[in-house]
Design a protein around this nucleic acid. Structure first.
Lengths: 259, 259
DNA sequence: ACAAAACGGATACGTGGTATCCACTTAATT
DNA sequence: AATTAAGTGGATACCACGTATCCGTTTTGT
């Protein structure tokens, strides 16, 4: 399930009314583009009160559903959850990409701030651990955010550029941790990203079994990154019960590509 | 993309010929079940020479494609790659599940052997590292195997039971490593599985950028599991170039569940 | 009261998978 | 070589599910 499925309709003008479609053949739509209706917020004209109300509702529903089920939810789902018709959603947001963009811009900004705060921490290692904890915590509570950070759904540029802003900060942070002798010498800042990726996998897989499980494996990974692992605290929480390991292992999505 | 998509056809008898389907309405098939044709290998009657040849071809193609692209490949893909028609594949293998089962039973057995050998290793830690290396190496070179080990596609029982056989062995192995003081005291055998899962994510994500990258992160994870991380060797290979981190982060499949 | 704006949801349309059917080809047997 | 059962192939039915449209109806603002 690609998060942003390729637009499929795009009715070939030549095919208008050639494939059946009883009763709709003639008379192009009156709603299709009634005077640059789309793009509210850029155009000056304010939305009608009910429209604005619905816009909010849609945004709320989208936020909730994306967080809960990831970016894979359909606009129909969102519409239903918001208590409006599909048409309303599509009038407001030309496609899912724009809806996601307008929703997550701010959330992604949070990540940057988190990392900036980590860099500013007088104790670099403390900065690193708290950053990981905070960032993963966000991802654990918001599937949509997680997918924006790891999987790059379709062509969301926003996610890419944000990752571009994170990189130099991570570099700085790792540099400081090296200087203070707390980070193992052969760790590079790129490893922070891959660590995130590994832990994201745990978040994903264990969400239903123990939503806090990632903390344990963050502990293990941090030991692997640290120059003085013996100084780090005990692992929490406990590992999954042996009977449930299977559940965790089985909860991962599978790879793509078919032809 | 679920690996084993629910069968969709299963033509409702009542709907025969009610939805159009010009020219096919009457006269049930002559090929549908000509005297228990299916299940070759259990039934005594040997296959005709060409049929047997095609069976091999299909198996080869399936092996190759599953390894290369994961269990998501369609039977049509396999048929084409084998140079036979789809019908031929479906006559030989009632559905994809059986094809997978007959292909991977042996491969999964290999994993068990690998772990048994690790348990037998006089140096438990050496056993652990070599097991991880061998198992992940297998997974890196065979997407299908990887998916059987982590994602449990649909209802493949075989994978589940194999994992059941792995567990006690892992327990034994971790016990020995504890006894020899090489494994960190608070590690449990369940953590081996989750470590696999994390590293599988790296394998998946980095396959196109650097297929050996998982070794570096295995190194980091092993440091996190070890009681004496300072004794472990340097990390290899190097991390991905900063410009390529994005590629890796973006290569992960996304979560499932829609409604 | 009236027009413009917005609504809603049935429905077209596309994609991409599974599985079928039957006219034709081929191996095995006589 | 003739016969025929076994096997083949691939166009096609069929379905699930997603996106996006269209237009009769409802609501808002003046």
């Amino acid at each position: 399930m690609n998060v942003i499925t390729q637009p499929t309709h795009i009715r070939d003008p030549a095919s208008l009314g050639t494939t059946g479609d009883p009763g709709t053949t003639g008379d192009p739509g009156t709603d299709g583009d009634p005077g640059t209706d789309g793009d509210p917020g850029t155009t000056g004209r304010p939305l009608r009160a009910d429209a604005e109300r619905n816009r909010e509702r849609i945004l709320d529903a989208a936020r909730e559903l994306f967080a809960e089920r990831g970016l894979g939810v359909t606009l129909n789902d969102i519409a239903h959850h918001a208590g409006v018709g599909v048409g309303t959603v599509y009038r407001r947001f030309p496609d899912k990409k724009q809806l996601i963009d307008s929703l997550f811009e701010q959330r992604l900004e949070e990540l940057v701030e988190l990392l900036e705060r980590a860099v500013a921490d007088p104790d670099p290692w403390h900065g690193i651990t708290t950053f990981f904890e905070a960032a993963l915590s966000l991802q654990a509570s918001d599937s949509g955010l997680k997918e924006l950070v790891t999987g790059m759904p379709g062509g969301l540029e926003k996610a890419r550029t944000i990752r571009g802003r994170l990189m130099p900060l991570a570099d700085e942070l790792v540099g400081r941790a090296h200087a203070s002798g707390q980070m193992h010498a052969d760790i590079r800042h790129q490893d922070m990203a891959i660590a995130q990726l590994m832990l994201s996998a745990v978040i994903d897989a264990s969400r239903d079994v123990d939503p806090e499980l990632w903390r344990r494996y963050l502990g293990i990974v941090l030991r692997g990154l640290s120059a003085q692992p013996e100084r780090l605290g005990p692992l929490t929480p406990d590992p999954p019960a042996p009977e449930r390991v299977d559940e965790v292992m089985s909860a991962l999505p599978l790879s793509r590509r078919s032809g």
